[in-house]
Every structure is written in C-alpha cells, then in structure tokens.
C-alpha cells in the first residue's frame, strides 16, 4: 500500500522543487506536445538529454523515476507491441501466421516506447517535487479564466484539495482496519480470486462507513465556521512566480527550438 508512486511527493530543496507549481504544470503539458516535433534519432537523443538533465536537477536520483514507470509498464508494452504488429510498411523481417513484423514497425515501436517513457518521466517530475496541494492550487489558478463562463473553479479546487488531503488519512485507516481484521483471522491475498475479493468486504465496509461519517463531520465543521462558496476568498498558500520560473521557461523554450532544429539534420 505504501509503494504507490502516484502523487508521492519527495521533499527536497532543489531548484526544481522551488519552481512555482504552475510553471511545472504548464511545462509538463507543453512537453507532451513538443516531444512530437522529434522525428529522427537526433531529436530523441536531444529530448532524452533534456529529460535526464531535468531529473538530475531535482536531486532525487534516477531510481525513483524508473520506479514511477512500473505501474504503467503494462500499458507501455501493449502500445509498443501494437505498433510492432500493425505497422505493415517497409521491408518484411518476420512473417508468421497473421503477424508481420517490418522494419518500419520495429522503428516505430521503439519510437513510441521512448516517447512514452520520456513523457512519463518528465511529468513525474511535477508529482515528485510538488506537494499535492500545490498541484491543486496550480490547477485552480490556471483554470480561473473559466470562471467567466460559469465554471465553479474554486469549488472544484476545494473538492480536489479535500480529496488529496484525505488520501493519507484513509490509507492509515485502511491499514488499521486491515490489521484489526487480520487479528480476527482474515487472510488477505490468499486463496482463489473469489475468496480474495470476499476477504476485502470486512475492510471496505468499515472504510466506507467511516469515510462518509468523516465527510459529514467535515461539512458540519466547515459550516460551523461560516464557510460559504463565493469569490474573493484569500489564500493561505500563495503561488508566486520568481526569477527561476523565468529561467525554466527560457530553458524550455531553447529546448523546443533545439528540438525543432533537429528535424533538419
């Protein structure tokens, strides 16, 4: 349960950690588009170097980033294999039954794999170096223009922050209920599929009951302190662009131009 990498923040003092959450968010999104400019080996080498440099700058080491790939490994492999088998142009290398592997297929699957890996690793920088609540704040700030067309941006952001805030609480609670049921003789992760699924009932029912109770209590507590929705709420955590954000944007801009230039090599 504790090896969930999704949204796991690792504290640090690097430049990347100190970047504004919005900067990291925007750059992550841009990277997904920019990476498609690469169309030859030099482009991918350049992009890989840029991602590697970014990771080094976080000071967290490569290992945690590779661990972040694991949950998505299946998806990456399936996409790669689909490319491998369904690309039918180029010279035929192997032909067996209905499967044909061609040179174009091999090249394309390698490209898809590398691109996928780079995107995941680059976006992992955001989640590993930014506290989840700051990511929520960044989303709120970036979505705020949508308020003009009636989207309840601050309410949505509040929901996201509350949900994020309760993830660790619910994990702890799940752990302690699990212990209590194990002490009463439940063997989790043993036996057949149906037995396994059944063994989770004594965990899930109390967990849901408590989560609903907690939600009601939180609602009461917010009401008791006079919470109401509305504009112009001041913030406890204020996002602020600084010089290093400018540097990051500039560096990314240079990277994008460089990547575009590799198309002409």
């Amino acid at each position: 349960m504790s090896n969930m990498i999704l949204g796991r923040y690792l504290p640090g003092v690097s430049w990347v950690h100190r970047l504004d959450a919005r900067t990291k968010f925007i750059l992550s999104m841009l990277f997904i588009f920019v990476i498609f400019m690469a169309n030859n080996i030099y482009g991918y080498l350049f992009a890989t170097a840029f991602v590697a440099l970014s990771i080094i700058m976080t000071g967290l080491g490569f290992k945690v980033f590779f661990n972040g790939l694991k949950p998505l490994a299946m998806l990456m492999l399936i996409t790669t294999f689909l490319q491998l088998f369904f690309m039918n142009t180029g010279t035929v290398l192997v032909h067996w039954w209905i499967f044909t592997i061609t040179t174009d297929g091999v090249i394309n699957s390698v490209i898809v794999f590398v691109r996928f890996m780079l995107i995941i690793m680059f976006t992992t920088i955001l989640t590993l170096t930014t506290p989840p609540l700051e990511v929520a704040d960044a989303m709120e700030s970036l979505m705020s223009p949508l308020r003009k067309i009636g989207v309840p941006v601050s309410e949505l952001a509040l929901m996201v922050s509350i949900a994020l805030r309760f993830v660790p609480t619910l994990m702890d609670e799940a752990q302690s209920i699990m212990n209590a049921q194990r002490a009463r003789g439940v063997a989790f992760n043993e036996g057949g599929l149906i037995q396994r699924a059944k063994s989770y009932v004594p965990l899930l029912i109390p967990l849901f009951v408590n989560a609903i109770k907690r939600a009601i209590e939180l609602g009461d507590a917010m009401e008791a302190r006079g919470y109401r929705d509305g504009e112009h709420r001041t913030k406890f955590r204020v996002l602020k662009y600084t010089k290093i954000d400018g540097v990051a944007f500039a560096a990314f801009f240079i990277f994008a131009i460089g990547l575009f230039a590799t198309r002409f090599i």
Binding site: E173, S176, I177, N179, A180, Q181, R182, A183, R184, G185, A187, E190, V201, P202, I205, P206, N210
Partner: peptide
C-alpha cells in the same frame, strides 16, 4: 495467520472493525 489463533487483540477504537449486518454475525466472524 495460524499463530494469531491464540491471540485476541483489541485495537484502539475497535468499533472501526464492525462490518456485518447483525451484531451476532459480527461477533461470530472471528
């Protein structure tokens, strides 16, 4: 798992472990 048989453990706030439909069924669970 087998060893726990001889050990009864009452956790902090043990009411969080209740889940069955009736009181009797919950006590019979262990």
């Amino acid at each position: 798992n087998g060893m726990r048989h001889d050990i009864g453990m009452v956790f902090q706030f043990p009411e969080a472990q209740l889940f069955e439909q009736t009181v009797l069924a919950d006590v019979m669970f262990g």
